[in-house]
Design a binder for these strands. Structure first.
Length: 456
RNA sequence: GCCGAUUUAGCUUAGCUGGUGGAGCGUGGGACUGUUAAUCCCAAGGUCGUGGGUUCGAGCCCCACAAUCGGCGCCA
């Protein structure tokens, strides 16, 4: 007798069964019904768990009338425990099947409210008449159930590997994980894109970035990183925007713009490498070209100055003037010819906020960079060298007409032994969306938050 | 914030110049011993997003509102 009750830990996974680990053995499978079909004497059940799915065969003469009838009426997403012998079969999807000797229903499904998501729900015709995976209102409303469909599960696995790769990369390069508050008092930049939160009679905001608090700890930890949510109250209606997104940020003392870029390239390449190493099946399921992902993992990311980008755009007849920030329509034209991500550096000072360090070699530019992903996915990293001396930061703040008072703590960091430093922010959801070839960023986050949706 | 579009059964959708709304999936019942999103037969299931207007008559025409989707600006 176990004093604290029995255990029901699962040890047998469908993915391993499909790899041939249990051939000719009698095993117990725990999972959910994915599909059901067959005749009066023979039923085919597709059972799924988090690792895959397998065809289970129920025969009347083996199961007896009662259990066979139970099997026959079983509804999609019923949770069950199946016992049977594994065999190889060319007719079975995946090459293996389970001949059921007994079945126990764990959690039934109400036939008056059957599982509301069918295959057809997930396919949407786009303007070219092609079937794609859009988020229909229905699947978004039933997001809590949509998550268990094959495509959603696949995306979440890729996401998990990406998060793991980011942690591994930074920890492997002597970065310390460091947390900043999510409630903040003031704006990082602008102010119109902050979510306001009532805070015991005061006004607080949800953070847009970890950066300012990271800079405060930079003289203490020197190399630090985080993966945390950031919030932007932008009413952006695009396939690249969320109001709550996962932001991988790093800050590094004793570093130039170039040094920061090297890590930006390093972390993105290591994410691509991790997906290839850990998630080949998932990438294949998504019909992703593995050679393409390998190219992202194995090649250096070229760097291009803003001026050069403007010349290229003007050469293509795009109406753009020096000094303009490059919006998405221009990014898209620029990245059409890229087969790996490219860095864009040295933006005009007028296009960027005060914390970007002015280039000492030409004060019209700042030492910053954006990393643009190919295939039309756009900006995935924004970063650069910070304005690090007290004198320069005060000059930049005054130049922009920004009040000094809200940034006093930011200025203080520079008053006591400022050092050259910098960092970047990486949109994790954007990177996963790009590498997965997702049709929309919300495909890669379990419960997407956009300007029009906070539920479920 | 700006521009465009959509809304018909639980879901996906058809609907002719305005004349009593069809199908597939799913659900329920039935047939079938190797199916592959199985197939075949039957049934139930709709105040056509909401409100107003035009008309003898509105799913269809007009107005307003709402929800949702796509694109742009902004950014990760």
């Amino acid at each position: 007798m176990e004093p604290f009750g029995e255990s029901m830990v699962k040890t047998i996974w469908i993915g391993d069964v499909q790899k041939g680990k249990y051939n000719d053995q009698e095993i117990e499978l725990k999972g959910w019904i994915k599909r059901e079909r067959g005749s009066n004497k023979l039923r085919f059940i597709v059972l799924r768990d988090s690792t895959g799915s397998i065809q289970c065969v129920g025969k009347l003469d083996l199961l007896g009338e009662d259990m066979f009838q139970q099997l026959k009426g079983i509804l999609i997403e019923t949770s069950v425990i199946m016992t049977g012998v594994v065999s190889t079969s060319e007719k079975a999807p995946g090459g293996h099947e389970l001949l059921i000797s007994s079945m126990e229903i764990v959690g039934a499904v109400n036939s008056e409210r059957p599982f509301p998501i069918t295959e057809a729900d997930m396919l949407v015709e786009d303007e070219d008449g092609e079937l794609t995976y859009g988020g229909t209102e229905h699947t978004l409303n039933h997001r809590h159930l949509y998550l268990r469909t094959a495509r959603a599960t696949t995306m979440l696995k890729l996401r998990s590997s990406a998060f793991g790769a980011i942690h591994s990369y930074f920890r492997g390069h002597d970065f310390l994980e460091y947390q900043a508050p999510n409630f903040v008092a003031g704006a990082v930049e602008g102010g119109s894109t902050l979510f306001e939160v009532p805070y015991f009679g005061k006004q607080a905001y949800l953070t847009q970035s970890w950066q300012l608090y990271a800079e405060a700890a930079m003289p203490a930890l020197e190399r630090l990183y985080t993966i945390a949510p950031s919030f932007r109250a932008e009413k952006s209606r695009t396939r690249r925007h969320l109001t709550e997104f996962w932001h991988a940020e790093m800050e590094m003392a004793w570093a130039t713009n170039n040094d920061i870029m090297a890590h930006g390239e390093g972390v993105v390449r290591s994410i691509a490498r991790a997906l290839l190493d850990e998630r080949e099946d998932e990438l294949t399921y998504l019909e992703r070209d593995l050679n393409l992902i390998a190219r992202y993992a194995d090649n250096p990311y070229p760097r291009m100055r803003y001026d050069e980008a403007i010349e290229i755009l003007q050469g293509k007849g795009v109406a753009v003037e020096w000094g303009q920030d490059l919006d998405y329509s221009k990014e898209k034209v620029l990245t059409q010819d890229f087969d790996v991500p490219h860095f864009l550096t040295h933006y005009p000072k007028v296009a960027k906020p005060f914390y970007h360090r002015v280039d000492p070699e030409d004060e019209n530019y700042v030492l910053c960079h954006d990393l643009l992903a190919p295939e039309g996915y756009g900006e995935i990293i924004g970063g650069g060298e910070r304005t690090w001396s007290e004198e320069e930061i005060l000059q930049r703040i005054d130049e922009e007409g920004t009040p000094r008072e809200p940034y006093q703590f930011y200025i203080d960091v520079r008053s006591y032994g400022g050092v050259p430093h910098g960092g970047f922010g990486l949109g994790v959801d954007r990177v996963v969306s790009w590498l997965a070839g997702a049709t929309h960023i919300r495909e890669v986050i379990p419960f997407p938050r956009t300007s029009r949706r906070v539920t479920p």
